[in-house]
Structure formats: C-alpha cells, structure tokens
Design a protein around this nucleic acid. Structure first.
Lengths: 246, 246
DNA sequence: CGCAGTATTGAAATTTCTCAAGCCGAGTGG
DNA sequence: CCACTCGGCTTGAGAAATTTCAATACTGCG
C-alpha cells in the first residue's frame, strides 16, 4: 500500500456506511458490525469521469466518500439529463443490486473518492438480515422520492426549480453534516445545472440572478451559500417531508 | 356478502400478485403459496377518488385489480402533477411499507377495484422470506426507473413526451396481458395528460394531433390504439430497457 | 333535449431558447 | 510579471416554442 493510499484510508468507510443507515432505522451491534466489516475497495475518480454506464451490469455498489457523483440519462440526440446528485454518504447505484442492467450512467461532477462494495457479500448480508435489507430498501425509496420531486419541477417556474434544487442540496448536506455554516458544496456549472433542471444555461443564469438579487443565495466557485433560508424555501415551495428524515 | 361483492370475487387476487412477482424472479411453491394467502380486503373506488393522501401514514398496501390509479403531487399553487400511472397488477404505494409518511397522493383515474393488504402480515412475510423481500424491493426499483424517465421528459420535445408516455403505457399493458390487440386503456383527458407531462392542455392537443396525423396512434374515449409501433418508438426515443423486463 | 365536461381552432401574450458578443478569472508560458 | 488562452459567466436582442385567452364544436349522460 502506498503512502497515498494510506492517506485515503483516513476515511472510516464502514463507520460512514453504518451512520448513514442508522439515520433511517435502528440496528443491533451485530448488524452494525457486519455492515462495517463488509469488504470494499477504494477508488479515486476525476471530475467528469464515468463510473458506471447505461447498459452496464455492475458487480459493485458505490458509496460516495468525498466529492459529488451524479446519475444521468443520455438521449438519442446526445443530450444529457442529470437525474440526481449524490454527496458523501450516498449510494448512487444501490439499485444495481436488484436490477441487473443500468438504465442510466453515473459520473463524477468533481474529483471524488468512492468505496466499491462487491455485490456478493452485500447481497448475502441483506439476505440474512432483514433489518438491513429493509434499511437499504429504504435508501432506494428515498431516492425515488427525490426523483418524484424532480418530475414535479416540470410544473415549477424556472426560479422555483433552481431554488428547489438549492434547498434540496443544502438540506441534505446539512443532514449529513457536510454543510459549513450556511454553505455547502455544489460543484456544477450553469450548463450542468441546466442539464439537471431541463433549462438552457442562459435561463439558469437569469434564474440565479433573480435569487441572488433577492438576496436568497449565492453560488460561486462550486460553493452554495444560503443567505435567507426561509425566503429560499418559500421561493422553491420546498417541503423537506419528501426526504423522509426519520 | 352481497351478490355484488361476490361478483368482485371473480378476481383471483393472490394469483395476480404471484404472477406479478414471478415476472421478476423465481419463487418456490411455498413462497408462492404464502404470497397468495396474504390477507387483504377489496375496495371499489370511483373515478377521481383519492385512496391515499400526501401526509398520510398508510397501514395497507394497494394492489390494482381493475382500472387505473395514479400518484400525484399537489403544489403550493394548487396545481397537480401526476407522477406515475398504474394498471392492474401494480402496487402504487408499496413504498409506504418502508416510508411511513406519504410524500404524494394516490387517486383513481377511472372506476377501479383494488385490493388492500395490511402492512403487518406483508411486512412479516418479507422479513422471513428474503427472496420475496428482494422481489418487492425490485418492484419499487422499477417504479424509480419509470420516474427517471419522467424526469428526462424535461429534455424531450412535446411530441416525444407524449409518444413516450404512450409507448410506456402500451408496453406495460402488453407485458401484463392487458392490451387488446394494438389497443390498451388510457382513461386520461388532455388536461390530465398535460398534468402528467408538464404541458398545457392545448399543447397536449397539438402534440396528439401530430401523432395522429402521422398515423402513429389514436386516442379516443379512454382507449389508446397504436397504428405504427415502430414509428411511435422512434418518435419517442423509447427504449424499454428501463422497464427491466426480466 | 340540454347540460357539463372535453376537444378543437385561431390568435395574442408570454416564456424560453438561440445566437452573438463581451467579460472575468484562473492557469500557462514567454 | 504580464500577455494569452480557455472555460465559464454575463448581457442584449431576435427567433421560436409554449401558454393563455376566447370562442366554437362535440359527446356522453341524465
């Protein structure tokens, strides 16, 4: 193991996984231990790099340790539609455990570090521990709830869409303990925000401008800062209910 | 039991449930039997009636026997956004088994018949039979895949959106054995289609007109007929991969 | 027959996108 | 240290898409 790899090891991967699952249910000490001792391997990914591609049959489940990952569809036209954004503690392709073929791709939005859990041992553990199985199931259900919100973006104004994305990201960052004060990481260009929200880059810019001028948020150099949470929530019509915080 | 209720009984609910799950995995005879003998009660619902509301904490899981159910969000503005459409064999609120509070509502699009399975015995069965647990988990994952497609609608033209919805509905109806020739039920008004696709009723009308004039489909009196499946698939950019047919 | 909800059509108003050009800031190399 | 370059942000204006408005048919049902 190189010095570099050892540096990486400062992340207690098992602990992160356990704490994430604990947010959504009780686990016995045994279960926690079994979870924390699952085999995995670390992997660094660079900004823009793909981790899984549409059509793949993954044999590992990814846990984000650092940075931001995203899922996306590629349309026939070549256009890209981002489906969800994932921060440290998320497992973006947990579904691959049960759905063999990927219907979308997963990529890194910035330099990231991930843990890859082989499906075999994970699946075996879930088979034996129904509590864990339900907990992981639940994680994918929360994903689905977030997808539903993204669908509803269709019915929101541009400003509300953007505000909603900001609310969601900041809320989740805070929930995971990843926020610093009223700021969190959001390493997306206006083009990428557009591909996530289904709007042109210029429309993103103008919506952002409005939010900025209303002194609700600021987004620069990949960092999102919230100046008026209440105002932002109102502008977005944000209701954290759907994130199902226990 | 009234004569009417007996009429309802012609549905073999257990069998429907088993066949649905079998589409996505192997079950032992024992498992099939346990599934088929789960307790439930029947319920008739009228067109437009709500079955579960945003904020509810359901204690039953719904299986559609007849008719069409839909999930929807209600926005602060009062606007409605349909999230998914469900036909006989679907379990629209399976997630409530794991997520206590509903983040959306479920309603009937036409007169429908549903079976309601109390959470208790169902959960207990899934706890004991990991195979069944994985199978049901899988059903919710396919839901999520459909949600993802709906997000991507953002990036599609109006015509492609509508075409995609038609493809999806017909494909699923066929998969479930609910299609009659090249036709299937789609009991939605143009307004409702608009609320599902995030477009105004008039835009739905014009998109529909194009598809009709291209002799791809026809939609009248709640029945969708496909005249040119290949052409429709092309117009939609439809790839059934995401429905994860085993 | 007539009502109520739905579909159809045209035209105006609005939103959103595309195009085009300038600006800014970080990193590069002379 | 400074010009240069590149990607991303900003701004304006015209083009295109979409929605709203308004008015007329159509359809199933009581």
């Amino acid at each position: 193991m190189t010095g570099h790899d050892r540096d990486i090891e400062k992340f207690d991967v098992g602990e992160l996984l356990v704490s994430r699952v604990l947010q959504h249910g009780r686990l016995t000490a045994t279960e926690q231990n079994e979870l924390a001792t699952l085999p995995f391997r670390l992997r660094k990914v660079e900004a823009g790099q793909d981790i899984v591609l549409q059509g793949d049959r993954p044999d590992h489940a990814v846990l984000v340790l650092k940075g931001m990952l995203a899922r996306y569809h590629t349309l026939a036209s070549g256009e890209r539609q981002y489906l969800s954004l994932h921060i440290a503690g998320d497992m973006p392709d947990l579904q691959s455990l049960n759905l063999a073929i990927m219907d979308h791709s997963v990529c890194a939005m910035n330099d990231a570090l991930i843990a890859m859990f082989p499906h075999g041992p994970l699946r075996e553990l879930l088979r034996q521990r129904s509590t864990l199985c339900f907990a992981f199931w639940r994680l994918t259900l929360i994903d689905a709830a977030i997808f539903r919100q993204a669908i509803t973006n269709n019915a929101r104004t541009h400003v509300a869409r953007l505000a909603h994305l900001f609310c969601e990201q900041f809320f989740r960052a805070k929930e995971y303990g990843l926020a610093e004060g009223n700021c969190c990481s959001l390493p997306l260009s206006q083009i990428q925000l557009g591909q996530a929200l289904g709007m042109a880059q210029i429309s993103v810019h103008r919506a952002l401008q409005r939010l900025r001028r209303a002194r609700l948020v600021e987004l620069k150099q990949g960092t999102l800062c919230i100046h008026d949470w209440g105002g932002l929530v109102r502008a977005a019509g944000f209701d954290p209910l759907f994130l199902h915080v226990a």
